[in-house]
């Protein structure tokens, strides 16, 4: 790289622009979180000040923990997200392996059929999905959500994973076959470990939309015992609109788990996006 494209003035301007945008991006989150730790008076008097010994208060969090069943909501969200990711990865990897490894009649057609769902949002079918879930008695169970998210995540998962599986060397698989491994063990013991980075990418792509979805929890599982964290905080905040402490604390409690996951997985996520897996 040459220095001709690089002058101190330019890089100063670049940093200034980026810092300005970072402030725009983080300011609302910052304001919500700092005010959740203040008492009601200071929230209104000095909304931009950090909480100090005088204004510090956890009253909002106490209300939230007393009134809303946030641990249950959190648990539901965890179950739905983890189970959906498990099925997306397992079924997606299996189908991707079949499409990438074997030549059979209808291979291309099957690939196209599974890829249809990448562009068409599953929400279009909501009316019939609800009728089906009611008919099968799955409405207001976490299974309804897990099934929907699995179906939603599969097309892209199959697409990405089969691209990666085509790159696994044939010699390795044939060596396994000569050693007498069954096709199932070749899949599970040779191929899956080799595409682990791709599996992680698919998992991270799917995790955030599933965790944050409001539409399907609202329609398929609105019962108290199956509410997810997103729906639970939506309902809770709607009820407590005038209790600013509670609303700000509920928002912060909804932000923190996602931020935690983001800090853990951000490298994977950004590497996944920038590696061109979605091109």
């Amino acid at each position: 790289m040459t220095t001709a494209r690089h002058s101190p003035l330019n890089s100063l301007a670049a940093h200034a622009a980026l810092i300005a945008y970072v402030i725009v991006a983080l300011f609302p989150v910052f304001v919500i979180v700092i005010n959740s730790f203040k008492d009601r008076r200071s929230i209104f008097r000095e909304p931009l000040a950090l909480p100090d010994a005088d204004s510090f208060s956890l009253i909002g969090y106490q209300t939230v923990l007393k009134q809303g069943d946030f641990f249950l909501y959190f648990q539901n969200s965890m179950i739905v997200t983890v189970a959906s990711l498990f099925f997306i990865l397992l079924f997606g990897a299996m189908a991707a392996f079949a499409l990438a490894e074997y030549r059979f009649r209808g291979n291309l057609l099957m690939g196209l059929y599974l890829a249809l769902g990448i562009m068409i949002p599953i929400r279009i079918g909501t009316v019939a999905i609800l009728e089906m879930m009611v008919a099968t008695g799955l409405v207001n169970t976490l299974w309804a959500l897990i099934l929907v998210y699995t179906a939603q995540g599969l097309p892209l998962a199959v697409f990405i994973l089969s691209e990666f599986m085509r790159q696994v060397s044939d010699d390795l698989k044939n060596a396994g076959r000569i050693d007498g491994l069954s096709e199932y063990r070749i899949f599970a013991q040779l191929v899956v470990p080799l595409v682990r980075p791709a599996l992680a990418t698919v998992a991270v792509f799917n995790m955030i939309p599933i965790w944050n979805d409001l539409w399907f929890p609202l329609i398929l599982a609105p019962a108290e015992e199956t509410k997810t964290l997103t729906l639970g905080s939506q309902v809770f905040i709607g009820q407590f609109v005038t209790d600013w402490n509670a609303v700000l604390s509920a928002l912060s409690m909804a932000i923190l788990p996602v931020m935690g996951l983001y800090v853990i997985f951000s490298r994977q996520l950004i590497r996944g996006i920038t590696s061109g897996a979605v091109k």
Binding site: F91, M94, T150, A151, Q152, F187
Partner: peptide
């Protein structure tokens, strides 16, 4: 290998879409 993905995808996404 294909069945689970195709069944879930067809039953929960494609069929409801056409329904």
């Amino acid at each position: 290998f294909l069945a689970p993905a195709v069944i879930v995808y067809t039953a929960v996404m494609i069929l409801p879409l056409f329904a």
